[in-house]
């Protein structure tokens, strides 16, 4: 399902949570939607999943507006970091509700996941720990098999082995049942290699949308004598730079070959480093 966003804005009073965002997501990929807290990720996902209306601009999924749209809502599953389920329900009832709501629901997978995460169907939501609640969110999100599945910080409170299990199952199921998965997180390092495409939001604007492999190919970490680095960076976009005792080290957009020809040491930029710097606020902005 193609998602098309054009000049989308959302204001809360004087605060622009989203500011004229335009982008197209072709679909059937794993997307990383990244940004610091307050960059507009959650607002974007709420609009995408039809839960709130934009202040201006448009969003369409397969040509239709998702707001209050029955056909689309059953194609989109949004799992947030908390409060996905009402506290008085039992896990069993949650699964029942999801199975009614999502036409592609896979009960077998849901039960298998509950077992893996050690969750009892008879347990009430309000008795679950934060990590258990997250695991249930992940179970519901994966088993819904919705054509568009959005995970907004879904693993708060989950321990490392459970998170690893989640990534494994996600990748396996995604390959058997390709669909659009949008992953929003500020814990980038564990998941960065799973993304096919990366979208970075900063202060309500899209500052980058790029295939993860291209991004890796286009960015370089260079080091060398300060004047040589200065000369090389003169016409480049610099991501981050450090100087120490006459030598300099920088992350920049540029070609590996050009940097080598300029006599500099060249390496790749670790993805999480890259994303951390790109999602950071610009100085003085």
């Amino acid at each position: 399902m193609e998602i098309k966003v054009d000049q989308l804005s959302k204001n809360y009073g004087e605060n622009n949570a989203l500011d004229q965002v335009s982008l197209t997501l072709e679909g059937n990929k794993i997307y990383g939607l990244l940004g610091r807290n307050g960059a507009g990720k959650t607002t974007f996902m709420d609009i995408l999943s039809g839960q709130i209306l934009a202040s201006a601009g448009s969003i369409s999924i397969d040509g239709e507006n998702p707001f209050d749209n029955q056909r689309l809502t059953e194609s989109i599953c949004l799992i947030k970091e908390a409060n996905n389920f009402s506290p008085e329900l039992k896990i069993k009832q949650v699964l029942k509700i999801y199975s009614y709501f999502y036409p592609n629901w896979n009960q077998e997978m849901a039960e298998e996941l509950l077992e893996i995460f050690n969750l009892k169907q008879s347990a009430k939501i309000k008795t679950l720990s934060k990590g258990m609640e997250s695991a249930l969110g992940i179970t519901a999100g994966l088993a819904s098999r919705a054509p568009i599945t959005v995970f907004d910080e879904p693993y708060i409170g989950m321990d490392a082995p459970s998170r690893k299990k989640f990534y494994e199952i996600l990748l396996e199921d995604y390959q058997e049942n390709p669909r659009t998965i949008i992953f929003s997180t500020h814990l980038i390092d564990e998941v960065s290699l799973m993304f096919e495409e990366v979208i970075i939001l900063r202060e309500g604007s899209v500052i980058l949308q790029e295939s993860a492999e291209d991004l890796r190919a286009k960015t370089i970490a260079i080091s060398g004598p300060k004047d040589q680095v200065d000369a090389f960076l003169a016409d480049k976009e610099i991501i981050q730079r450090n100087d120490l005792a006459g030598s300099s080290m920088a992350y920049a957009f540029g070609s590996r070959k050009e940097a080598l020809d300029a006599g500099l040491e060249v390496e790749g930029v670790p993805v999480q480093e890259l994303m951390i710097h790109l999602t950071e606020k610009k100085k003085g902005a």
Binding site: I30, E168, L171, E172, Q175, M194, F195, E196, A212
Partner: peptide
Amino acid sequence: STNEFAKFYQINPAT
């Protein structure tokens, strides 16, 4: 296979 690599290293299958 692509699957096996993706699962083993937890990387995107397209990669």
